[in-house]
Design a protein around this nucleic acid. Structure first.
Lengths: 207, 207
DNA sequence: TGTCACGGTGAGTGAGCACTCACTTCAGGA
DNA sequence: TCCTGAAGTGAGTGCTCACTCACCGTGACA
């Protein structure tokens, strides 16, 4: 008999509210998401939301803060360090691991990512938070990785910032196309990523 | 004496309202932009807005429709045709003209572009409009251009769709970095674009 | 069994919003 | 000079929304 044992236990209380909020905000935007609608979808009374979160803004913070902490920060602290430490011999290997990892993280956090991208242009605090994480940690770490492969003669001597921009554009472009623009298309991720990696690797190879 | 002769004549009426609306909506998002605030910045009474636009939504449409028509459609009808017809001998030349043109168009329409990107995930009608323009015209035209350079042996035989995705990612990535993420950085557009074009051209070159 | 704390409830409230309408101003034509 | 219609005005209206509060049910513990 098909049991539901391995599914997560029915969610209740705060977690129900947070999940419903992520749903509604992702659909309608933060301003467009009414707390009454969030309550309805969470199956709780509207007052219950405000028992747990003093204001709607704090509910948004509660959604975005762990997103920034768990999704952006790990790039700097867990994954990038792991990638640097793993020290792939070939630049192409590094790129493959990096791209797959980013695609996976984006896929797992898609609704929160949507909300995040909606709010970034509207919220200076959020932008500051991102600059703290990305600007201070991720970017320098990734630049170091690029310099390493440059020192090994696997990447041409363009400025590392330029190289990084191209890498992020291509990986980001794939993720956006894959998850947002054409999610229904029957993608073969391995094949597409290999083709993409080959183009980038050749393009960045020294003469 | 410094006159203001070459500046546009003081804007009034509908145009004032539209400009103020673009400003406020770009800052606060569509829902966050109060018509009272738009009226205040336009220097008109709130009622005046509704004399010209039956609803706030129609004001948004009035901002976005010409954006889609004038900014997206021209890629298909004016610029892409011009690019195809101009028939640059080298793929790198095509890419250069294309990237510069896109950067220019994005720069000139930055506030409207911001609003557009804010609204796309929230509005199915807008997405449909985009698919009509981009999907039916721009994408096929650009694929044809790519096939042309493939036939000339200047681009490797990866699927044109993959090539297009990579091109759009790199050009889009530069535009986003340039205009949204680090607009204050002292960019040397020619230099950055040349480096980028070189990487892409080499990456896509046949063996 | 009485008491207490805690999570939950939902009608109610005030603020802010999109939108209306009765009125004013003014340019142009008869 | 008067009439007309278009453009503009801003106080007013009703609705939606975030947020409050007095109350409820339950389980733990004396």
């Amino acid at each position: 008999m098909a049991t539901r044992e391995d599914e997560p236990a029915p969610v209740r209380g705060v977690e129900r509210i947070v999940r419903a909020a992520i749903e509604v905000i992702a659909e309608r935007g933060f301003r467009g998401a009414a707390t009454s609608e969030i309550a309805r979808r969470a199956g709780v009374a509207e007052g219950t939301i405000f028992r747990h979160f003093k204001t709607k803004q704090l509910l948004l913070d509660h959604i975005l803060e762990p997103f920034v902490e768990r999704v952006l920060a790990p790039i700097a602290f867990r994954d990038v360090h792991r990638l640097i430490d793993s020290d792939e011999p070939e630049f192409a290997d590094f790129l493959r691991v990096f791209a797959r990892n980013r695609l996976e993280v984006a896929r797992e956090n898609l609704p929160a990512l949507r909300i995040f991208l909606q709010e970034v242009p509207l919220s200076p605090e959020l932008r500051a938070m991102v600059f703290r994480h990305i600007g201070r940690h991720i970017v320098p770490e990734l630049l170091a990785v690029i310099r390493k492969y440059q020192a090994r003669g696997q990447i041409r001597d363009d400025p590392p910032e330029t190289v990084l921009r191209i890498l992020m554009s291509v990986v980001g472009g794939y993720i956006v196309t894959r998850l947002a623009i054409l999610p229904e298309y029957p993608w073969n991720d391995d094949l597409e990523l290999e083709r993409t990696i080959r183009v980038v690797t050749r393009g960045l190879a020294p003469d």
